[in-house]
Design a protein around this nucleic acid. Structure first.
Lengths: 239, 239
DNA sequence: GCGACTCAAAGGTGTCACCTTTCTTGCTGT
DNA sequence: ACAGCAAGAAAGGTGACACCTTTGAGTCGC
């Protein structure tokens, strides 16, 4: 599992493990929307004290996943009210049966974000960043042409390229979604979708993005970024 | 203030008000990154019990805004680790000095999201939804041509149109960002940027989006959506 | 005088017992 | 039937406490 790629090392405090359990249970439908449970029951299901459970419920509440009402208990809310962009929730929805649908959604987000990020980067990124992007792109070509397309170093360079691209947009909301890209890329490798020999187009496009950014050519940067994501999008079975 | 447009009515429990205070304080730099405070101090600054403070800190922690370490206290983390897409955090960053920068960032997000949402909607939306979009678009035209472009009903129709568009993308992550669009639109009206007589282009473009979706013409849907957001983007002072 | 070790205090983590507040439910009296 | 009221359930909130980790000051040895 590629879990380790995301630097999520929440302190190993008790409530985190409980949160993890409850969260995944809700996401996977073990606790369907509308189902109600009391703090007391949660308390001894998890075998921890009241305080811990309450903190967990608070967090879930702030993510829009549950609602806690007096005299009623804790109600699971419908998925429409969840904060589906919360990094934790994104991870939960990558486990189990939801995994494929989630990768699909995430790829669609990339379709939106990366071309715009590339455009903004072309407008704002420093030459240093442009050069770094170009270096990462040529590293991809070298590794890819050596048949290493499904190996860890290739994946890491790919992730670094796209994370840097999002960061170069100069918009922290866009940059904050690098986890999405990471998951999609890692997910592709996980599922064995990454070929040992990526299509040469991919190298060209990555390099073209970097060059366009160095040239401050917004339209081209956007266009090539779109080409890159479209490729992934089509791999996932879209026309 | 347009606060009421977002349906955020967190139960008026004690910890919510504390959370609000602490959150805004951090966002506005009253408590800068790196600053440390103990639970005990927070406790009597806010005049509430330990439990409440702990729940608040837990939520802030899950948003990546603070880190709580033993023997150290609660440390404010740098903005780079915040979950900047969390609806609460988005709101906090719309208050005070950050407001303008935040509206700018949010508009850039729209630049990414709406064209793609329109494309996906053209692929997936039912005819009913297409018709509803068209109705909202013509409502905009009617109100706008009557010089009502800066009135509440116009704003509401505008918001409804864009929220429906995002929802029609069929991707819940994209749809979940409707709050962003709402804030940008409401923010424009707030700041008096919405003219009483919007440029006629705007009506044409909104209608064109709806028609393209009804025709399942993905490219046109994307293109016109881009035109709509570009207009806003330029109003904000971008070339 | 400098480094390594020890140990005590600080402060977050987890547990408990207990009170308050607010809903819901159902009964009661008209 | 229906309005109003009473009872009770469950979350909200408080405060005290034991525990465990971390830090940093002080001590010992070289």
């Amino acid at each position: 599992m590629s879990r380790s790629l995301l630097n999520l090392s929440p302190a190993p405090v008790l409530h985190n493990s409980i949160l993890e359990r409850l969260g995944t249970e809700i996401v996977q439908g073990v606790r369907p929307p509308g189902s109600v449970i009391t703090l007391a029951r949660l308390e001894d299901e998890a075998g921890v004290s009241r305080t811990v459970i309450r903190e967990v419920v608070r967090i879930l509440e702030s993510m829009g996943m549950v609602e806690s009402r007096r005299r009623v208990g804790v109600t699971v809310l419908p998925a429409t009210s969840w904060s589906v962009l919360d990094p934790q929730l994104i991870r939960w929805r990558l486990t189990g049966a939801e995994r494929h649908a989630q990768l699909h959604r995430l790829t669609e987000m990339r379709l939106a974000l990366e071309p715009t990020a590339a455009r903004l980067a072309a407008r704002r990124a420093s030459a240093e960043v442009g050069i770094e992007l170009l270096e990462l792109a040529s590293r991809l070509r070298i590794l890819g042409e050596a048949g290493q397309g499904h190996e860890q170093p290739y994946l890491e360079a790919d992730i670094a390229f796209h994370a840097l691209l999002l960061a170069a947009s100069g918009n922290d909301m866009i940059a904050s979604l690098h986890g999405i890209v990471t998951e999609v890329l890692a997910g592709r490798t996980d599922l064995g979708l990454s070929p040992a020999d990526p299509v040469p187009d991919a190298f060209d496009n990555h390099e073209a993005i970097a060059r366009a950014i160095l040239d401050r050519d917004e339209d081209r940067a956007e266009q090539y970024a779109k080409a890159v994501v479209m490729e992934v999008w089509q791999e996932l079975g879209n026309t």
